[in-house]
Design a protein around this nucleic acid. Structure first.
Lengths: 141, 141
DNA sequence: TATTGTTATACTCTATAACTATA
DNA sequence: TATAGTTATAGAGTATAACAATA
């Protein structure tokens, strides 16, 4: 079988294309994928920067800059954790919640367009297969 | 639905993880994904650097360095196209063909491990869905 | 001593523009 | 005038190590 038609190759390419299109959609609202992920994870529960780093899977030193940007734009707030004053608790501000909601809508539209070649059942099937595939690798889903 | 369980998000993450594991496997044989792709595409037919650039989807100026490296290692050869002396025809040397065969084996093993959570039928289904999804986006499959 | 967050530095990667040779 | 290939340079992005504050 040709290398370029294996599941692994197609998975890599699909990921690259999907990421590129998501980036474009998010850029329209002045967010990059990393900022979007921080908003997403922080929305669930107030997390420390270390915890965000672990769950998102990017270096702690990179989180600093992302949170700096989001804080300047008043989308998140740094609050000191009273139990451990080394830590911040990163929380979404009301405008952070609004921005996240808009971004979720935009990315959903991109996903919908991206999946256009698949009908409803096929999309559900794809999602289920990817969930099985990634469950072990994404402990913080 | 949580953002982190949508098909689009999972596709991005799966692509990133698959790419990372492929990179590691290829690094063991001193190849990066780009070099691997050039070997793959050049194996089918002798192509110009511009043509490789178009099909693989990376900048022509980046092809230069990749071909330089592969040529130094005697995995590919630059032959002038007699019909258009501006062009090279990039061809695989015998050791290039051997290196490609080894790399294909290594990446197949990685793919097999990556897809471990899915049984035979599920893998075939995933591949078929990804083919449908990517057919339009990958004109040079 | 270890951990959280931060900063600075150096390194890599990539995109741009300018160039040569050929068409 | 346009195209194939090349080179140089500048800019962005990232990883590393070192630091202050707190545990």
């Amino acid at each position: 079988m040709k290398v370029t038609t294996t599941a692994g190759y197609l998975l890599m390419k699909a990921g690259i294309h999907a990421t590129r299109e998501m980036e474009a959609a998010l850029a329209a609202m002045q967010l990059n994928p990393r900022e979007f992920l921080v908003l997403t994870y922080a929305a669930d529960a107030p997390l420390s920067q270390q915890e965000l780093s672990r769950r998102i899977g990017i270096d702690p030193t990179l989180i600093v800059g992302v949170v700096d940007t989001l804080e300047e734009r008043r989308l998140v707030a740094r609050e000191r954790d009273p139990d451990d004053r080394r830590r911040y608790a990163i929380t979404l501000t009301p405008s952070g919640q609004k921005a996240l909601a808009r971004a979720v809508e935009a990315t959903a539209a991109v996903e919908d367009a991206f999946l256009a070649p698949l009908d409803r059942a096929a999309r559900a099937e794809l999602r289920s297969l990817l969930m099985k595939l990634m469950k072990e690798r994404l402990p913080y889903l």
